[in-house]
Design a protein around this nucleic acid. Structure first.
Length: 812
RNA sequence: GCGGCCGUGGCGGAACUGGUAGACGCGCCAGCCUUAGGAGCUGGUGGGGCAACCCGUGGGGGUUCGAGUCCCUCCGGCCGCACCA
């Protein structure tokens, strides 16, 4: 028995963790053999944005949970690749740099260094040989390359569009970065509407595939639902209303069955056809309304609080179903971004139209008779009804009327079936400094010219004053010798695109880069990519359900279509972890309840801290962080430490029958739990096992054979501790090169089980019996029990229910 | 308003396809050990009752031999979306 250990009687995490951290480095325990691996397993966690505050406990919770999974897979025999990187470009970093008045090029590397220090203390199985930093030109060269590929394919387009402008960030935001009309980064700042030339990725071309592919992805249901809602597929029809002058006005509706009730129309104020419809008498009023709407930020346009407003254009169009002439209005409750930017208003069966019609005294007509008489009247918006006031369609159920009316209108060229998505194209332009420049050059002669691939990367020029100004133009426009370049086509003087790309583009492909960091001549090596991707397991937060995860899927899909990747979905399995709260409230700086992991790790050790985080609640739900709970984990590890220190060589003898059975039950249970990320119950099963071991044979030394599997099972959760225990038990190699223990169903079998006896569903007795008792025997034994007799005697046994090895229920 | 998740002891949380509610841990109580203990060990710990028993998983109703689990309804909390036609 080797007795040389970290040199102490009692468990001292600092000593143990330092020892094994160094040894992992020497032995390269955590480095994956990317080229030679037999059973590759890509275990991905969401790389962090290196904030100045450093890692917080939420990050640690996320990383440790993913790490537990990776280590478990490794013990199961997979070659696990667990890389990490830093999402270091972006407004987030830039704004912070502005705040502390330090250049991001100086600040961010400092932050990264601090993050690494913290990460290295968490006992993660990270392979640091493949670190990715998005600010590295070796990386963003390929981010720009992806832009060029999408541009060539027509998936990156420049268009003038209404965009979300944050006056605080002084830049455009993606829709996904606008929270209830407020800037994601500045919750007190209302986002304004601006019209700018922007670069867009046509993610909407992929809406249907992004939706449909979910059927074959193993993702957390919550994440899937959020994506499905975000994509927002609606089936309906595009209908055409014509004016007497022959101008067509197209509207999208999900309720073509109610077209006979369309008594007016509404255009969004920005609708391009507004001028066409505005009569000279109404011109003044319309223009005034439009400029009001344009000046308004998106918040003021919001629902609920605000009364609907609008103005009549003076024109009329013909309802293609009823043939009636209906007035055309403009109003800001109709959004230009969705559908055609125009609607047919059916005030009889749409709440918003009804509110508007009442205010402006427009005609309200009932065209649906609800099946439920209590719903009768106007204002019914459900589907359970039949048509009325709808000509030849009267009496037809709504659901049937949708195809019937659509087909009928199609026959008159007045409509067509249509599917609409709420998903918008992805605006990737940012009028800021801290990002990869978009690789485009504008030439007076040649127009928009992509930077030739061999000229990549377009380096971000050093710029002392990178502060954005009111102009709405990126600070890069101020770097004259960078800005002016010869046109790659004709050689005449041209200028660069001055916008940088959205951070979410950086993070939309970082996982593709990890296996291929050794190459500078390709973004991702074909062989390595096919070997390691798609990602086997991705664990991260649901805050990225519709941003990062959607963009990553889109970029992967586009690269697949362009022949650069053989798969179209990047993440085979995705699991969303929960949130750690403090005192029932989300941690936030303003609440002052943010938990910094460092002091806890210093005090308790990484292993105890890791295990505590995994123990405080179901991993996929999160939990409440309370320091008092940590001591329970530490006590547990102390007990294991004591058992291992006193272990005797050899197998489990007769006195350890119960322990051996419990061991096999534990192996089975812990394996199942880890498989499903049920870390909290896995830990409780290990605790139960240790409790049984300690109760065995009056505290005599426990045979090593009962402790070795325990050391292995502790590996994913408490890796340093497991290594030390494993060594103490006589092994030279890393515990992570051991194999996950196998359980024996026979040995796990209880000799005696407790059979519950119920009378009329109430527990009246418990029998100790051998498993496999038949129903007759069970009933007989039950009836013999005193505690049962009392309730059965003198009554007829009407029925007995027998659940083998669980219970008998006697119904009297 | 729509969509999703959730509501269990003093606390965090267990409970597989309906089958012993409260595993495991924290805390608390008692005892042992100790000069001492915010250390360790042993035992106890949902509520009521001396007991037999009775009551208990947010409230109310239902299905079932049997409901924390399924259905209906109401209340409360968290997250996402939010004038999406």
């Amino acid at each position: 028995m080797p007795v040389e250990r970290a040199g102490i009687e009692t468990y001292d995490p600092q000593t143990v963790e330092r020892k094994w951290w160094e040894r992992w480095g020497e032995r390269r325990t955590n480095a994956a053999d990317l080229h030679g691996a037999g059973r590759p397993y890509f275990n991905l966690m969401m790389y962090p944005y290196p904030s100045a505050e450093g890692l917080h406990v939420g990050n640690v919770f996320a990383f440790v949970g993913a790490d537990v999974h990776g280590r478990f897979r490794r013990l199961q025999g997979w070659s696990v690749f667990e890389p990490i990187g830093f999402d270091a470009f972006g407004i987030h970093s830039e704004n912070y740099a502005l705040k502390v008045n330090t250049h991001p090029a100086e600040l961010i590397p400092q932050n990264i260094a601090r993050f690494k220090e913290q990460l290295k203390r968490c006992g993660l199985m990270l392979d640091w040989d493949h670190e990715v930093q998005t600010i590295d030109p070796r990386y963003y060269k390929w981010t720009q390359w992806i832009f060029l590929k999408l541009y060539e394919a027509g998936l990156a387009v420049r268009k003038k569009a209404p965009v979300n402008w944050c006056p605080e960030c002084k830049t455009v935001l993606a829709n996904e970065q606008v929270i209830s009309g407020m800037c994601e980064r500045h919750p007190d700042t209302a986002v304004e509407l601006r019209f700018l030339e922007q670069w867009f990725f046509k993610i909407t071309d992929y809406a249907q595939r992004l939706l449909a592919n979910h059927d074959r992805l193993d993702w957390s249901e919550s994440t899937r639902t959020m994506q499905v809602n975000w994509i927002g597929r609606s089936e309906g029809a595009e209908l055409v209303f014509e004016t007497p002058t022959g101008v067509s006005l197209r509207v999208f509706t999900t309720r073509p069955d109610t077209v006979f009730g369309a008594t007016y129309m509404v255009l969004a104020p920005e609708h391009p056809q507004v001028d066409e419809f505005t009569t000279s008498e109404q011109r003044g009023a319309v223009n005034e309304y439009r400029s009001q709407a344009a000046a308004m930020d998106l918040v003021s346009r919001r629902v609920g609080e605000k009364e609907k407003t609008g103005v009549f254009t003076g024109s009329y169009a013909r309802n293609p179903a009823s043939g009636e002439s209906v007035p055309i209005w403009i109003a800001d409750y109709v959004l230009m971004e969705y559908g055609t930017g125009a609607i047919m208003a059916v005030p009889g069966h749409d709440e918003r139209d009804l509110e508007f019609a009442r205010k402006y005294e427009l005609e309200v007509r009932q065209v649906v008779r609800p099946d439920d008489p209590e719903e009768e009247g106007i204002g019914y918006t459900g589907w359970d009804g039949t048509l009325m006031n709808s000509g030849q369609f009267d009496g037809m159920p709504c659901a049937e009327a949708v195809p019937a009316i659509t087909t009928w209108l199609e026959g008159q060229d007045a409509g067509v079936r249509q599917v609409q998505y709420r998903l918008h194209d992805w605006c990737i332009s940012r009028q800021r400094y801290w990002g990869p420049p978009i690789p485009i050059i504008y030439c007076d002669e040649c127009g928009t010219v992509p930077v030739p691939e061999q000229d990549l990367p377009v380096l971000l020029p050093p710029l002392e004053d990178f502060r954005p100004d009111e102009s709405g133009v990126s600070p890069l426009a101020r770097v004259e010798d960078w800005y002016r370049v010869p046109c790659p086509k004709c050689g005449e003087t041209a200028h660069r695109e001055t916008d940088v790309s959205d951070t979410f583009l950086d993070s939309a492909w970082y996982f593709l880069r990890y296996p291929s960091t050794e190459f500078d001549d390709r973004p991702f090596d074909k062989g390595l990519t096919n070997k390691w991707l798609p990602v086997d397991s991705y664990i991260g937060g649901n805050e990225h359900a519709v941003l990062h995860l959607m963009y990553a899927r889109f970029i992967t899909m586009a690269l697949h279509d362009l022949g650069h990747l053989e798969f179209e979905e990047p993440f085979t399995r995705f699991r969303a972890h929960g949130t750690i709260v403090k005192d029932g409230a989300k941690m936030s700086k303003s609440r002052g309840n943010v938990v910094i992991p460092d002091e806890y790790i210093a005090k308790w050790g990484a292993d105890t801290f890791r295990m505590y985080l995994m123990f405080l609640g179901p991993y996929q739900e999160g939990g409440d962080f309370r320091e008092e709970g940590i001591s329970g984990i530490r006590r547990f590890l102390d007990k294991v430490w004591g058992l291992v220190a006193a272990a005797t060589p050899g197998e489990a003898g007769g006195a350890y029958g119960d322990a051996l059975r419990k061991l096999h039950q534990t192996i089975r249970g812990v394996g199942n739990d880890l498989e499903e990320l049920r870390y909290n119950t896995a830990i409780s099963k290990l605790m139960e096992y240790v409790n049984v071991l300690r109760a065995s044979d009056d505290g005599a030394p426990v045979p090593a054979a009962l402790l070795e599997p325990l050391a292995i099972m502790l590996g994913p959760l408490a890796p340093y501790f497991a290594e030390e225990s494993w060594e103490q038990l006589g092994h030279d190699a890393s515990v992570f090169d051991a194999a996950w223990p196998q359980y024996d169903e026979q040995l796990a079998q209880e000799e005696q089980i407790e059979l519950v006896v119920q009378v009329n569903g109430k527990v009246r007795g418990r029998l100790k019996v051998a498993p496999g008792l038949s129903q007759d025997e069970a009933v007989e034994r039950a009836l013999a029990e005193e505690s049962v007799k009392r309730f059965v005697e003198g009554k007829d046994l009407r029925k007995t229910i027998h659940v083998p090895d669980r219970l008998v229920n006697l119904v009297v």
